[in-house]
Amino acid sequence: MAAPPERRWGEAVLNLYIVVFFVYLFAPLLVMSLAAFNDFQYPSVTQWRGWTLRWFGELARDVRLQQGLINSLLIAMGVIAISLPCGLAGALILTRLESRWNGLLYGILVSPILTPGIILGISTLILWRNLGVPGGLFLACVAQSSFIASYCMLLFMARLQRQDRTLEDAALDLGASNLMVFRRITLPFLTPTIATAAVIGFLQSIENYNTTVFAIGGQWTLVTEIGSRFRFGLTPVINVIGVIFVVITIVCAVIWTVLRQRERQMTIR
């Protein structure tokens, strides 16, 4: 079963490429993380002044960043509260609606995903300004929800397409009220997707810059605060935030992998 030499060459080139690609992916993270521990007032790895943890302390004292984090969390909660019901409603309608309008409706409801984030922010700002609502946390929440709801909808649709509708019919036939069908049959079936959608919505919201920066007005989130510091002076505190995010992700990724491994072993047993 020896592969022909030409193919072995091809595989070697591809493997090398993958290695280069991952260096490209991870080198910036490494550089950024290192700078968080450099005892130098500007983020740098080239001007090394020795190891320090003082930037972690600085972060703990940075009230604006902390307030930004709180604002980000508040917005994320709001976004989840708006996006999940809207996305679910859209998905339910689209999976059941047998009409030629279905395609158009689908197109409009996924369009926010395909629209540049700044445009979502701008259009939301203009609409609400006309209604007398200035930029702020509420507006950021609304602007983000417009596209995060689309992501949620796609997730729900994928799940609903695998739904066995006779279960709902069976429940009705056994005398369940419409509400009970939804509560006891549909919702439990959707529970894993609701969790996924909430996590994805949360991450998207926390992450978001392009949309938020237009809708946030005089307020700020963690990310817009970082964004504005690029203009008005950077310290390695920014890098510390990056390090924290990287660590959280790696921990989550490891936990996830371990859990999956264990699950797989369970099913084998």
Binding site: P28, L29, F230
Partner: peptide
Amino acid sequence: VPYAINELLRVYA
């Protein structure tokens, strides 16, 4: 993993 950190920080790196 690189997507764990924000777009801004990614570019900043």
